[in-house]
Design a protein around this nucleic acid. Structure first.
Lengths: 348, 348
DNA sequence: GTGAAAGCGCTAACAC
DNA sequence: GTGTTAGCGCTTTCAC
């Protein structure tokens, strides 16, 4: 017997007086092997609790059975729900998941993608960082043959599978509800101007205004280039809105992070919600219904988005499709109208 | 020139008419190499945008420069903060981070650890799943030479570095505040009975009772074996508490998940907080101050815990210490006394 | 049905 | 200072 500190095919082969290729065949359910031999090998491998080395296998096969995920931050409850969806689909297919964060930074995002590719992931799921405008580096990687599926904050320039929420409808309905409740001057605070998410939600917002015979006012539209993570983005936006002659009586906040931050800030300023200003946002936080006042929000199907995106990626990986018709899946959102937008709170 | 679809040392060596070892040396800043040759190689490598294959390097070196993390779920804000701390320390040392979730299940946890070891991580950071009681499998892995640092929910049985919050003090102070506010009958709801976290927080709770001349009542102590994630754990616990002859007038909830869930349930039942029952919990959610009523809570230093644990792990990895004196670091917690425990809410 | 041998991309003795 | 060689653990021709 060879020393037992590291169990390898070689050791098993030596102990059993066979060749490594036979052992390899037995363990991978290869058909060209004697049933008795196979049983003997499997029994011994089980006894030693042998687990084939993934790294060696990856190097040899060129496939790691791992998919990489790049998103802004797991601290955002929406994304942590997405992760659970991704895992559920991946594990079912015997794939591993490696989660990385871009913290809304282009440089970090690029670094994470580089890490993932160098670690031979079989495909990448990603939601772009707020700070990302140039995606040529992704296009290059995709063209080199690595499947990429985009979700949430997607890139319009790259042709690939995409999964998004119905951002337009969510924003349209939320804004419409504010207007229907009697608010006249609905402001808009969102993430970066160029993001797909912002663009779509903005369109929904504008449509609702138009449909109510309101002409959009540039001054009541605010963007946060760092999705509200930068020092004074939120504070400045609110300050500016409240200094307007025609001060807004409602705000539609278009991202999860911006929604919580704006809510926090307004509460800190001891401005009455919804009497002085009504709020309707986007959030997946389970605490939204427990805040004071309960926060009206558009809820995105996080789990489903992750699951669907992972399924599409796995399909690309397994079937090695290069010239597929790529599709964009749009998932429905749910509206929760609560006290912060002037509605009556109904818990549960 | 060799075909350019895959850039390897071999290709560079061929193109430059050198040996792969020379290329390897140049790229790894080896000293035994001619400065001019080195520059030529680096220039060409840069031109091709060459990135050495991590998998091959890992197989060869036996080190992946990656640390694995196992925790219950990133959906818990405390853990997502821990992750950010881990990343900050790891990136600084040029290490990658691979995050996995156990969802409080022993089997999943074991599977994740197996995945990580087979993928040759250089060390593991872990907080035990609620469902884990037998840690012999971890002991085996650690004894085989893989460094493991425990954080948050730790294992008393394995000798290794550990990082925890001051659970005893947090629980003691929280319970004391409830008692000082005039509540007479403070109940306790926590995660699984055997968890290190529960044990310590329970001890703090009991100490506070004793110090106030109160004898603990078994009937007002509830455990949730799945940390509140299982169907009716929370509902049953609350039902039982409220059916007692001597109904509690306050509840100390001892984990992040249990705290939010209990709060949610009490609000749904339309029981007045704190008038009918006061609440004091453990949570890292940033929305705690915005709930109604604002939720009194013990806040753990998530970022610091992750950072410290990662630093200790990296120290074990880099210095290859096998016979170190292992230490347990206890980090201070912060108390936020708010309206749910009968205090006045102060925002900000 | 089984074994021998080559090689995935890289590093590290060891020669020269 | 540079090249040759072996080998990390695995899979896969290709013989037999």
């Amino acid at each position: 017997m060879l020393p037992s500190n590291k169990i390898t095919l070689k050791k098993i082969a030596h102990d059993l007086n066979m060749s490594t290729s036979t052992i390899s065949r037995a363990l991978r359910d290869n058909h060209e092997i004697n049933a008795v031999t196979k049983e003997r090998i499997l029994a011994y491998a089980r006894e030693l609790n042998f687990r084939p080395d993934t790294i060696a296998r990856t190097l040899r096969n060129g496939k790691s059975k791992t998919i990489g995920v790049v998103l802004s931050t797991v601290e955002n409850p929406f994304y942590s729900q997405v992760i659970n969806g991704i895992e559920s689909a991946a594990y079912q297919s015997g794939y591993n998941v490696c989660i990385t964060q871009s913290h809304e930074s282009y440089d970090l995002e690029k670094m994470q993608v580089a890490h993932l590719t160098r670690n031979s992931v079989d495909g990448i799921l990603m939601s772009l960082a707020a700070g990302t405008t140039d995606t040529t580096y992704l296009k290059r990687i995709k063209d080199a043959g690595l499947p990429i599926v985009f979700f949430d904050n997607i890139d319009q320039g790259i042709d690939s599978h995409k999964v998004v929420a119905d951002n337009f409808k969510g924003a349209f309905e939320a804004t419409s509800q504010l207007l229907n409740s009697g608010y006249k001057n609905v402001a808009f605070i969102s993430g970066p101007a160029n993001n797909s998410i912002t663009v779509e939600r903005m369109a929904g917002y504008l449509k609702a205004l138009t449909q109510n015979g309101i002409i959009a006012n540039e001054a009541t539209i605010k963007y946060c280039m760092h999705d509200g993570e930068n020092d004074c983005e939120i504070e400045n936006a609110i300050d500016e809105l409240f200094l307007l002659d025609n001060r807004p009586d409602a705000i539609f906040t278009a991202t999860d992070n911006v929604s919580t931050k704006v809510f926090q800030s307004i509460r800190r300023r001891e401005i009455q919600i919804p009497d002085e200003v009504a709020l309707f946002g986007f959030t997946n936080s389970k605490l939204a219904e427990l805040t004071f006042p309960a926060l009206s929000a558009v809820h995105q199907p996080g789990f489903e988005m992750g699951k669907k995106a992972a399924e599409m990626l796995l399909d690309l990986i397994k079937n090695n499709r290069s010239n597929t018709e790529y599709q964009t899946v749009v998932l429905p959102v749910q509206l929760f109208s609560r006290a912060s937008s002037g509605s009556i709170t109904i818990l549960g």
